[in-house]
Amino acid sequence: MYKDLVSEFKHIYREHGKTTIAARAEAEQAADRISQHGYKNIFFAGSGGSITTIMAFAEIIKRLSDIPAYWEEAAELMVSNYKQLNQDSLVVIMAKTGTMIETVQLSAYCKEHHIPCIGFVMIDDTPVANQVAYKVMLDVESSPIRYLTLYYFVFRLLYNHGDFPDYESFCASLEQLPEALCHVLDAYDETAQGFVERYHEEPFQLWIYSGLNQGEALKYAADIAEELFRQKTQIMNAAEFFHGCLEIADDDTNIILLKSEGPTRVLDERVERFLRKYASKKLVVIDTAQFELPGVDDAYRGYFSPVILNVCIEELITNYMIERTGKSAATRRYYGIVDY
Rank of each mutant, 00 (worst) to 15 (best):
R156Q: 08
A58K: 00
K18E: 15
L158Y: 10
K327P: 01
A56Y: 00
K3M: 09
K327Y: 12
V307Y: 05
N254W: 05
Y340Q: 08
D251G: 14
N130C: 11
A31M: 03
F43L: 05
A45H: 07
R14M: 10
I93N: 10
F304A: 00
H114I: 06
M321G: 01
V296H: 11
G302W: 03
D251K: 04
I322C: 02
Y147V: 00
P306D: 03
G326H: 11
I123V: 15
L275E: 03
Q205E: 10
L177S: 05
S328F: 11
S173C: 07
R24Y: 09
E73L: 01
A249D: 05
C245E: 06
Y167G: 09
H183R: 15
R332D: 08
A30Q: 12
S305Q: 11
E112M: 08
V296D: 05
F57A: 02
F57T: 02
A239G: 06
V136I: 15
L267R: 14
D66R: 07
M137F: 09
T126L: 10
V6I: 15
I235P: 01
Y300Q: 13
R332W: 14
F44G: 11
A225S: 14
A23V: 04
F291A: 13
F274S: 03
G262S: 06
V79A: 07
Q105F: 08
G336E: 07
C110L: 02
G194V: 03
E197C: 09
I313L: 06
N319W: 12
G17K: 00
E269P: 09
E59H: 00
I67D: 05
A74M: 05
R270M: 12
S305I: 06
I208H: 04
I286W: 09
A31R: 01
V311K: 01
F155E: 07
S47C: 10
R33C: 00
Y70H: 01
V121K: 05
E76S: 04
I61E: 01
Y109L: 07
H16E: 15
V338E: 07
L246I: 09
I12H: 07
L293H: 04
A58V: 04
K219G: 08
V271P: 00
R270W: 09
L293K: 03
P294W: 10
C182H: 07
K277Q: 11
E226S: 12
V338F: 14
E168Y: 13
I308C: 02
Q176M: 12
I235E: 05
C245P: 06
I256V: 15
H161D: 08
E226P: 00
I67L: 15
L246P: 00
K10W: 06
W71G: 01
F155T: 10
I286N: 13
N130I: 07
R198K: 13
T103W: 06
V296Y: 09
G326M: 08
F242W: 12
V132T: 14
I21S: 13
G336A: 05
A74T: 04
P203F: 13
V271F: 12
I286K: 09
L150H: 08
T288W: 02
R230I: 09
D139N: 15
A238K: 01
Q290D: 15
